[in-house]
């Protein structure tokens, strides 16, 4: 990922658009669930979380490490999960990605996908556990279809993040 702008230039006085696009896109993705989707069981992927990890994979430096707190709070308020679960789990995900960045330096798309899918699995599992969605067997049955679709929708989500990234850098 070659830097197009030198580091010191990105640090001083970024235009508003450049700062806000990643955050806003995650908020919008979270809020999509309030649209009238016809879902009788948990089928819609956790779009906010997918957007978050897509951006984090693409650009490690756009957010402070605690960004999961405000973004997760918003997601909790619209999603119906217990308030606080996304706050905790999104922040854990950001910390985990930080740790992984230090260990696995050489990345390709496959590894990114695998990491993101693992993050999704842990996130859905922990979220269902926090919502007391029954015993382990029931939870796995509940989240499996959701996980499968979410994992398949990860590359498009990353593509959306990349497109938005291109747009926000084109001033």
């Amino acid at each position: 990922m070659a830097r197009l702008l030198p580091a010191e230039e990105t640090l001083i006085a970024l235009p508003v658009k450049m700062r806000l696009v990643p955050t806003l896109s995650v908020l919008v993705a979270s809020a999509l669930v309030t649209l009238p989707f016809d879902a009788a069981f948990p089928m819609l992927p956790p779009l906010g979380f997918m957007m978050l990890i897509s951006w984090r994979m693409l650009r490690a430096d756009i957010w402070p490490i605690w960004i999961g707190i405000p973004l997760g709070l918003f997601d909790d308020l619209v999603s119906g999960q217990p308030v606080g679960s996304a706050v905790a789990l999104w922040t854990v995900a950001m910390l985990a990605m930080e740790a992984i960045d230090r260990r696995i330096v050489w990345r390709d798309f496959g590894i990114d996908w695998l990491l993101a899918a693992t993050a999704l699995f842990v996130y859905l599992l922990a979220g269902a556990l926090l919502a007391r969605a029954g015993d382990m067997m029931q939870i796995l049955q509940l989240i499996f279809p959701q996980l499968a679709w979410s994992a398949m929708l990860l590359p498009p989500a990353m593509r959306v993040a990349a497109m938005l990234d291109g747009w926000r850098r084109r001033l």
């Binding site: 605690w66 707190i69 308030v83 606080g84 905790a88 910390l95 919502a131």
Partner: peptide, 21 residues
């Protein structure tokens, strides 16, 4: 400081989620 904020956020979030249930 950022790590501290993040960890406090995780603990508070978990506690809130458990209390909410």
């Amino acid at each position: 400081a950022a790590y501290l904020v993040a960890i406090v956020g995780i603990i508070t979030g978990l506690m809130a989620a458990i209390i909410w249930v």
